[in-house]
Design a protein around this nucleic acid. Structure first.
Lengths: 134, 134
DNA sequence: TTCAATTCCTACTAAATTACTATGAATAGT
DNA sequence: ACTATTCATAGTAATTTAGTAGGAATTGAA
């Protein structure tokens, strides 16, 4: 059970955008790539997921780039990770087949664990994360 | 971030052994395979991990097999998962390289999340799991 | 002491997933 | 029109997961 690099990079991006929030300017992917050490092309894909989930907005062309759609106090680490890590879901036996068909002892457990993880992650805002106040 | 099949199968095995705990007899891998629907050879490997971590003991030969080393009230889901899922550790940036070298904002977060997950998983005994009292 | 039943050990392999790379179209501003 | 940017999508290499396979070691019973 591991966090993907997308999860980590997603947080890096979120923190950079949080730092830039007050300026109200867009940060482009080249800048974010430099700040985070992740290639531009990979970041594009990660940021696309964040955009899709609504925590980031974008504009194209000169002076284009990305910014947060809300202030960093109001965006949580949980939101970022759920956006970026398609699989925060721990296990997909909720939807798919299972050798135990219905009587799986783990099923309920995974659900509760998922809730537990998310409610923790949702207590941490980007501001807190950036300040390492966790 | 997904639970592996080993994690799930490990729990299946643990529950079977828990059910059998009172009898004080050993359950062999063929029986466990039938009960869980997992191949014998794969189960062997999984149970080996549980044995290595000390929650299961074994004996060979006729009437051999496996049993729990403690009563099911005293063994937690956390113990099983840590035994079986080498990677409950979420991320290994604690030991290895990281594009941010030291100033990684996520590092502390992963540690706290790990603690959070484990302390939850350690509140659930095998007895509770078997009864779905989670 | 031999035999059968079992665990134990370790190497191999196929499938899936992750972590990128690559190409180019669409759009916004000057 | 031109340039700077995001957006969309396809491809690929590396890693991990999930499982197979073969046989050695041990135990208990006849």
């Amino acid at each position: 059970m591991k966090m993907s690099s997308k999860a980590r990079y997603g947080l890096y991006v979120a923190v950079e955008l949080a730092k830039n929030y007050k300026s109200d300017e867009y940060l482009n992917v080249a800048t974010l790539s430099q700040a985070t050490g992740v290639t531009e092309k990979y970041l594009e894909q990660i940021i696309a997921l964040m955009k899709k989930s609504g925590i980031v907005s974008a504009t194209r062309g000169a002076a284009g780039g990305y910014k947060l759609t809300a202030c960093p106090e109001d965006i949580t680490v949980g939101q970022v990770l759920r956006a970026v890590e398609d699989n925060l879901e721990i296990v997909d036996c909720l939807h798919s087949e299972c050798s135990q068909r219905g009587k799986c002892v783990a099923r309920n457990l995974w659900g509760k664990l998922y809730d537990n993880i998310n409610s923790y992650l949702d207590t941490i805002s980007l501001t807190k994360l950036a300040e390492d106040d966790i």
